[in-house]
Design a protein around this nucleic acid. Sequence first.
DNA 1: CAAGATATTGGAACCGGTTCCATATGTCAA
DNA 2: TTGACATATGGAACCGGTTCCAATATCTTG
Lengths: 339, 339
Amino acid sequence: MLDNLMGIEKQNKNIKATLRDVARVAGVSSTTVSRVLNDKPNVSDAIKDKVQSAIENLGYSPSPTARALNTGRTYTVGALVPTLDNAIFARFLDALEKRLTFHNLNLVISTTDEDPKTEVQNAIDLLNMGAEALIVSGEIRHPDFDQLISRNRIPVIITSYFTSNSPYPSIGYNNAQISKIALNHLFDRGHNSIAVIHGPTKHNDRTRERLKGIQEDKRFSSITYHEADISIGSGCAAARLIIRQKGRPSAIFCLSDVLALGVMFELSRKSISIPDEIAIMGFDNLSWSAHTNPPLSTIELSVASMGIKVADELNQRLNKNKPIQSQALEGQLIIRHST
Amino acid sequence: MLDNLMGIEKQNKNIKATLRDVARVAGVSSTTVSRVLNDKPNVSDAIKDKVQSAIENLGYSPSPTARALNTGRTYTVGALVPTLDNAIFARFLDALEKRLTFHNLNLVISTTDEDPKTEVQNAIDLLNMGAEALIVSGEIRHPDFDQLISRNRIPVIITSYFTSNSPYPSIGYNNAQISKIALNHLFDRGHNSIAVIHGPTKHNDRTRERLKGIQEDKRFSSITYHEADISIGSGCAAARLIIRQKGRPSAIFCLSDVLALGVMFELSRKSISIPDEIAIMGFDNLSWSAHTNPPLSTIELSVASMGIKVADELNQRLNKNKPIQSQALEGQLIIRHST
DNA sequence: CAAGATATTGGAACCGGTTCCATATGTCAA
DNA sequence: TTGACATATGGAACCGGTTCCAATATCTTG
């Protein structure tokens, strides 16, 4: 019977039923089916039932793309992040995704490894798949980016990094100021000569800002800088260099807890006591940082709440058409026993 | 001039130019514009130029949704994972996303916290936004799920978990067998009485399978089981219980490196030497596991290569229409100094 | 130079929903 | 009984691309 109504070919070719098929089987117009599908008023119960059972019989489910074409909405936002394989970004995205889902928005993630070309290419891909907004990590300086955005008239939101000098709103940290908080703490503890271990600065605004904040502080008699990949092994290696240098510093400020962990392992191997001989300060407050030996003093960036704020602003913008508000978030000093 | 051609309203209302606008401005048909956009043959260079500059002038960019409606493709796959805030899943997704991008596919991530209802609801959302395939973590037992899939006729792939008893293909680990590898190692080292610390088993196939593998092993005189949340603090707490129990085990097998790390911290605080007094075996081989003191023996699940394999199969299925091949992946025993 | 092959170009249908607007039916007060 | 108005329902255009197929122009080749 269905065969007759739908045409045998359709059954055989295993083609999905369309709204018009449902209309035909139910003996109503497509307008009515659409009304039933979207719970619109002015449909009698009798017809509603007929349509429902036609839907049931045909195993019909509406086409998301056709819907998107009409409504102009995909309910999708894209996020460009350096990597997922980093606790900080993962924590941010986890909170972001949950909150976006709460607002009926979907998250497409695209990783860039901090490479500007990949960043722009992935931004293009995200727009091509219908993203309604873009979340980026730090400013994107590639010249094509701005043009891409203005062509597509799409909201952009900068995260992890707060700036008031960008055409785009930002929700993130004033990284320079936050590293000063750590420096104040070290200074208060009487440290005068310190070493800083940081991740790659190339294409990384966050790290550069943190370093800028440190460089602006003139109170210390000596600050040495050490660039390392964000890995425990690199932290170990950097620590080896630092403890060998003449005029060994009394404190090491690691711009990532991962590096700090490496340093602690290395110092422990060398039986250098923390914080008596060398104090260690981290950055990120990863989940294990409270459990190291001694527990690591660090800086907490509440990236989960950043995720929530970003999702909320996107919801305002996309679902209520209100402009996005920039927000500068605070870092919090967490004093434990490594300093 | 553009005003005249496009109609002043369009300019004022700031409406995006469409392909037909481009056609009008360039003085050609929409077919031709489409040809130019898609690099199709049989367009003269002169016309190609005219179209290109019309596109430029109007700041035109094609509508992804209209395209999707025609081609029937969204180039999007959805992944349902328990959480992003877990190194193992993050590492998997990082590799998966990169490889999918390589295959011209986009990844939408949806987190479920292992809750079956959320899982199904999010699956619905993913399909509603146009996902062409679904990646799930372990089997989904909610009754609505199978119906949803058959209605939408969408490929599903089970990951992290290998099974041959599912209607869906799976690419993952035989968790039961892998925990046996660890047990063999402990047995070979002469351990006879062991404690097992594992994460929540509710709704978690992976953990249950790992436990099943352990329970099938009858060689040990005593095995005690301790459930804990996957966190360092819970690992510490579980360790406290275990070292207090009568007939203290000679080895602790943690079904997650995170738990193992907590145990090591606790034992270190209690000055219990590893592995002499108690041996520790982990599971996951997280990045810091090689750097603990002593370095942690563990099991490596190459989740990054799992991500690549999943992406490759999806590419075969979606872009070449070949069936998905199930694959059982091997875990690798990594012997360091904690056992 | 004519006939046939090949390269260009456009008209119009189509993808699968949504929505504007017209029509039909029903209700109630005057 | 009739006019005014609310409720149900359908016809057809529309969203913005893609593509089938027909029409025209250009190029070969005998």
